[in-house]
Design a protein around this nucleic acid. Structure first.
Length: 519
RNA sequence: CGGGGAGUAGCGCAGCCUGGUAGCGCAUCUGCUUUGGGAGCAGAGGGCCGGAGGUUCGAAUCCUCUCUCCCCGACCA
């Protein structure tokens, strides 16, 4: 890779962060989170405080995705945080997948003992409760009550919730012990319909990522070894971070009758016979915020796509503690109102007037780090001339390294703001698409070529032909890749046909699979 | 969970080896000067030195335990 990173490090530009992507990608990622006020440590292992700007981005994601989930016929509901242990025991594969990382509640009362609070032995729960790591089991139990007849199907529900998985190694947003997500769960009369649902929601995720997050993704089916515990088929969208690593940004599972047989989700069909329902589940989480950071961020912080930016346009008045300040603020308020009266992406524009009495330059750099798509500065001279000074966050600098601040008439800016936001959304998407495109190689045909590709500093992905081995043969492939710190990502839905030999086994290839390093 | 590193002011760090009541830069506050810009000068505020025990007349510093974070690995929808 390296294309996105100049080899010669001439920094004529003074950046807002004290570490660049090129110097140390992991440190840069953390710097963005901290400097953009997205989240911070909580003192609780693996758990984070999501700060208003970070949570605002999540709320934007929720709003946009929730509308799509509802538009595809699903209803929201809420299931309990606590799940009886016995629910998990019903499905062996599911147990295997999650048993190692579950938080367990065993007591319901504390008592004072030697000056300390300890669980009261008298208050031990008869049956321990686990904090949900995912809700297939409880929701399946509900489905078995709700579904009696073929007329009750399909059941199409979704919930926005938090889940807990006791992860060994955590990273802000990408893998935290507690995270926020939505989980959709559906039950259908036929496997065909359930598969169709699985793919429909995969497509909802794909278009949500592309259109709202400006994040190009590859949608496809996960290989057998990467399946969700209990799933018949697992599909994912995979996004490429600027260091070339893959991030699984959303998953959709066809669960077949795994959970309907474990939870007894049966219905009487039109011929009067009992049948097992076919279920699906699908989810995206706050992990996506990490994806947005690593796809769009630059050495000055986050670049937030307008559709998910809590504030799309921030107006920064340059105040000087003079009587003129009042006039400048009034002028800015007028601009803010005029912007907010317009619609962009079929929603009201979100313009924000930063009235804080801090120095204008400091406020500006604060918004640069947070990634506000458009930053408008207004000083006395602008006021006098009826102008504004406009910064586009997606391209901050001119060729000479100076800030590319455009002075324009107030009316022109207001009139063009909607189009400007649309342009920025598109520009971020195009930039990210160009990046992923030039960092996927589809021409490597042998293991030597594969090793060479991945010996680069920041390799992207390979799309290779393979024979789709299963069982022990697949394990061998996975083991080989593991030695190279690589994983099979997915089999892209739109990959071309296979016409050669399997890069791993030499057998005739049947499809194409993505290989890369992953988060 | 294994190996390594780290926790001292909001952020970044020095001090620890060779114990003696805590310092630097940026940020913050006040004043003056400046004003198309991350300003200059002067002054000020802010720290249970991650936590608990121990050694000592005295611990940021030495010892033990523990919590949290980072990196690598194992693990992982």
């Amino acid at each position: 890779m390296g294309e996105g990173f100049p080899q010669i490090q001439v920094r004529s530009v003074k950046h807002a962060l004290n570490v660049t992507r090129e110097q140390d990608f992991a440190a840069w990622y953390q710097a963005v989170i901290s400097e953009a006020d997205l989240a911070e440590e909580s003192g609780v292992r693996g758990c984070m405080v999501i700060r208003p700007w970070g949570y605002g981005i999540w709320e934007r994601m929720q709003k946009l995705l929730d509308a799509e989930i509802k538009a595809t016929g699903h209803e929201n509901c809420y299931f309990p945080l606590f799940i009886p242990l016995s629910f998990f025991e019903k499905e062996a594969e599911h147990v295997d997948g999650f048993a190692k990382e579950m938080a367990v509640v065993t007591h319901h009362r504390l008592i004072q003992k030697d000056g300390r609070l300890v669980p009261d032995p008298e208050a031990k729960l008869e049956e321990p409760l686990v904090v949900r790591p995912t809700s297939e089991t409880v929701i399946g139990a509900a489905f078995s009550r709700w579904v009696q007849s073929w007329r009750d199907l399909p059941v199409l529900i979704n919930q926005w919730a938090n889940v807990v998985r006791w992860e060994m190694r955590t990273r802000m947003f990408l893998r935290t012990s507690e995270f926020l997500w939505q989980e959709g769960h559906t039950a259908h009369a036929t496997p065909e319909e359930a598969r169709e649902e699985t793919l429909k929601m995969l497509e909802v995720y794909r278009s949500f990522a592309e259109d709202c997050l400006a994040m190009p993704v590859i949608a496809g089916e996960k290989p057998e070894n990467e399946r969700f515990p209990g799933a018949v088929s697992t599909y994912s969208i995979e996004a490429m971070m600027q260091d070339g690593k893959a991030l699984q940004a959303g998953t959709s599972h066809f669960l077949g009758t795994t959970f309907s047989s474990a939870q007894n989700i049966r219905f009487q069909n039109s011929e009067g016979q009992q049948e097992l329902a076919h279920t699906t589940s699908w989810g995206v989480s706050t992990r996506m915020i990490g994806g947005v950071i690593m796809v769009h961020g630059d050495d000055d912080g986050l670049r937030c796509p307008p559709r998910i930016a809590p504030h799309q346009i921030v107006i920064v008045p340059m105040l000087r503690d003079t009587p003129e300040d009042e006039d400048i603020l009034a002028y800015c308020a007028e601009i803010t109102e005029a912007l907010n009266a317009q619609d962009v992406f079929r929603e009201p524009v979100r313009a924000h007037l930063d009235r804080k009495s801090a120095k204008a330059a400091n406020k500006r750099w604060g918004w640069v780090k947070k990634g506000a798509p458009v930053i408008v500065e207004v000083g006395g001279r602008d006021l006098a001339a009826g102008n504004v000074s406009v910064l586009r966050r997606d391209r901050l600098y001119k060729a000479d390294g100076k800030l590319d601040s455009a002075i324009m008439a107030k009316g022109d800016f207001i009139g063009g703001a909607v189009q400007l936001l649309a342009e920025i959304q598109t520009a971020l998407h195009e930039e990210a698409t160009a990046f992923i495109s030039r960092n996927i190689n589809r021409d490597v045909k042998d293991m030597e070529g594969l090793k060479a590709w991945f010996s680069a500093a920041r390799p992207g992905w390979l799309e290779v032909q393979w024979s789709k081995p299963t069982g022990a043969a697949l394990d061998k492939v996975v083991e080989t890749l593991k030695g190279l710190k690589l994983t099979l990502r997915n089999v892209p839905s739109d990959a071309g046909p296979a016409d050669g030999a399997c890069i791993f086994t030499g057998d005739a290839a049947v499809e194409r699979v993505l290989v890369g390093r992953a988060y």
